[in-house]
């Protein structure tokens, strides 16, 4: 257990270091930041002055160390476009992204898990086929197109929900449904197969044999055991979720980190691109670490085996 608890954070440190290095290399690949920062046609003297200011005249190794140090302190430099620290621009947008991601995750869990259970309990029957059909289609739909179709039907045709923007529950509906569908299809499949696994166990038969009602057995004995792979899976979905928010925010004009990132890319606002990528990656890494720990603590079998 202790060995595991020290091993995992080490692994995550490596990931974080990899991301930071990637961002550093990417910045160096785009050309001379000093030239990009100066407006118009700068003279050589101006460029050299800017290089000095940015520390670009120092050896690459030293620059790298300074960059990593700054990144871990959350310092990515000033946003070219907003003139304030890049990290504060990103952090300002974070609550909107978090709200979207969590409502989508909750929606996916609340809808997809019961559907998966329903399918498992009714294996081979109509309910099962229906759920599986939905899941297969759900996995094949490009989710950004699903978002557009939702806008078309519920925003344009029926005018039930706003097609974009931020600020009320109504604004949240379409983006979170889109995002939830994105992760929901595979969640339902996993819920179904882990439930099927559990349903075949001896203790389930025993519970039924002693006269407990089907729903008690399924929900109490079954779900508790099927929940373990499910929780892990949902944790792993955070990556898809964070990637998905970038696209969904763009479609629904949702003022989150993802939309900021795309705007920063088109404005060549590199400090913000770096800060947004780094912070999103960091959130992902931390959430996964938490999921891992929670999961280990929850399941005595895993806890003792490690």
């Amino acid at each position: 257990m202790m060995a595991w608890l020290t091993h995992r954070p080490l692994h995550f440190l490596i990931v974080v270091w990899g991301v930071t290095t990637l961002v550093f290399v990417a910045l160096r690949m785009t050309g001379d930041p000093a030239v990009m920062l100066l407006p118009g046609d700068p003279t050589m003297a101006e460029i050299n002055l800017m290089r000095e200011k940015l520390g670009l005249n120092k050896p690459l190794i030293e620059q790298y160390v300074v960059f990593v140090g700054n990144a871990f302190r959350g310092d990515f430099g000033q946003s070219f476009r907003h003139g304030v620290p890049a990290s504060s621009v990103v952090l300002e947008r974070l609550p909107a992204t978090a709200l979207l991601a969590f409502s989508a995750l909750a929606l996916a869990a609340v809808v997809a898990i019961p559907m998966g259970i329903l399918a498992a309990v009714n294996r081979g029957r109509l309910a099962d086929l229906g759920v599986m059909l939905l899941a297969v289609i759900g996995q094949g739909v490009p989710f950004f197109w699903l978002g557009l179709m939702l806008i078309l039907v519920f925003g344009v045709e029926f005018r039930m929900f706003p097609t974009g923007g931020y600020g009320s529950i109504q604004h949240l509906v379409l983006p979170s449904v889109t995002l939830a569908a994105y992760i929901g299809a595979s969640t339902a499949r996993i819920a179904r197969s882990s439930m099927l696994e559990v349903l075949g166990q001896d203790y389930m038969r025993t519970a039924r044999a002693k006269g407990l009602a089907l729903y008690v057995v399924v929900l109490k004995h079954g779900l508790r055991n099927a929940a373990i792979p499910l929780v892990t899976y949902l944790g792993l979905q955070m990556g898809l979720l964070l990637g998905g928010t970038v696209v969904v925010e763009e479609i629904f004009a949702w003022p989150g980190v993802g939309r900021l990132l795309l705007q920063a890319i088109s404005f060549r606002d590199y400090p913000v691109v770096q800060a947004a990528t780094f912070i999103l990656a960091m959130i992902f890494v931390v959430v996964n670490l938490l999921v891992d720990i929670v999961y280990t603590v929850l399941d005595p079998r895993v806890r003792d085996r490690r």
């Binding site: 692994h11 995550f12 490596i14 990931v15 990899g18 991301v19 990637l22 961002v23 990417a26 690949m29 785009t30 955070m238 990556g239 898809l240 964070l242 990637g243 998905g244 970038v246 696209v247 990132l261 795309l262 890319i265 691109v273 990528t277 999103l280 990656a281 992902f284 890494v285 996964n288």
Partner: peptide, 19 residues
């Protein structure tokens, strides 16, 4: 492991934006 513990679309967006 390292690749799977990073949201891939972010990587793709970053690379495509840079190159």
């Amino acid at each position: 492991d390292i690749q799977l513990s990073f949201p891939f679309i972010l990587f793709a967006i970053a690379v495509m934006a840079v190159t």
